[in-house]
Amino acid sequence: MLVVALVAVVWALASHHASSSETPPAWGAVLALAPASMALALALWRLPQRWMAVGAIALQAGLLLGAWPWLRTQAALLFLLEQLGVYLLLALFFGRTLRGPGESLVTQMARRVHGGVLSPAQLRYTRKVTVAWTLFFAGVALVSLLLFLLVPVAIWSTFANLLAGPLIGLMFIAEFLCRRIVLAGEDQATIADAIRAWKTHNARNAHKAP
């Protein structure tokens, strides 16, 4: 856990340096492109025909190499697009479970923590928490985009690369404290329980994926 936290801090500091530099270093573009490029390559590798997978990955590499003279100078823009994609996908991940008759994402995870049984108060609360996380991620994406467009890039980078991560941690803590008040007297999960439920949910989804 400590190693993961250390890597996250180093990544955030390096991203901020690359984004806010007057002359963006080429390694900044590599850092920004790496996660999405690797994720896309892994997805392409799962294509049903191996020749299709190899051809698609080769095309991806060719496009990146062809655009590299421009990409290498656009670290801030690349970090913005990467982060917007992540936050909007998270907002969609939570928000899509609010539609229809099914249970919200946080409700599903709470059922795993509590052995499948939730009180009416817990059902109402977990749905509201799902709404809160949806709005939080959408809000972070909107604020990041507005700052990128309206203020100096160093200010945007401070928010996007140095503050957004801690804000997610504060959101976890705020929800935990709120739950202690709203669900006083109920059987409550700890933050560790919530993290385990999140990992279990993601692992089951990955197992179901073709």
Rank of each mutant, 00 (worst) to 15 (best):
L118V: 04
A34E: 01
L135N: 05
P69D: 06
P25R: 03
M109A: 13
Q188T: 08
V9T: 07
S144Y: 11
W68Q: 11
V143M: 01
L88D: 09
A29W: 00
G62Q: 03
A41G: 10
K199S: 14
V30N: 00
I173M: 13
A53Q: 09
W156E: 07
G185H: 05
H201Q: 13
G62E: 05
P24A: 01
A34F: 00
G102H: 03
L6S: 11
H201F: 10
N161S: 12
V3M: 11
H16I: 09
F93A: 10
A5W: 07
I168N: 05
G116R: 09
A154R: 14
L31D: 10
L98V: 03
I191Y: 10
L142I: 12
G139P: 02
S144T: 15
G169V: 01
Y125S: 07
M171F: 03
Y87Q: 10
V9D: 13
T107F: 09
G185Y: 06
V131D: 09
R196H: 15
C178I: 03
A5M: 02
H207K: 12
G139V: 00
V143D: 03
F137C: 05
L78Q: 07
A203W: 13
V143H: 06
F94Y: 11
S144D: 15
L77C: 04
L145Y: 10
L63V: 15
T130N: 14
R196F: 15
F137D: 01
G102K: 03
L183Y: 07
L150F: 01
F159I: 00
T126W: 03
P25K: 03
A58E: 14
P152E: 11
P35V: 05
S104P: 07
A67E: 12
G100C: 00
L149V: 08
L90Q: 07
R179L: 05
R180I: 01
E186T: 05
T190L: 09
G66Q: 11
H17V: 11
S119M: 09
G185W: 08
E103P: 11
F159N: 07
L6C: 08
S15E: 12
V3G: 11
W198V: 04
Q122Y: 00
A58V: 09
P152L: 02
Q188S: 12
H17E: 13
L78R: 07
G102A: 06
T190Y: 08
A43H: 11
T190I: 04
F136L: 06
S157D: 08
R96F: 00
A206T: 03
V86K: 14
V30D: 00
S144P: 13
G185N: 02
L84C: 03
W156G: 10
F136N: 05
M171Y: 12
G55Q: 01
A164D: 06
Q188V: 07
F172S: 10
E186Y: 00
E175M: 06
A29H: 06
A18R: 02
V140P: 10
W133T: 03
A132V: 15
F159A: 04
E186A: 11
A5Q: 02
H114I: 09
S19Q: 14
A53K: 13
A194Q: 05
P166D: 13
G95N: 11
P48I: 02
A154G: 04
S21W: 01
P210A: 06
K208G: 02
D193L: 04
A174R: 10
S119I: 05
Q188F: 02
L40C: 08
M38E: 09
Q108P: 02
F159Y: 10
A75P: 04
S104Y: 01
N202G: 12
V129C: 01
R50V: 07
A174K: 06
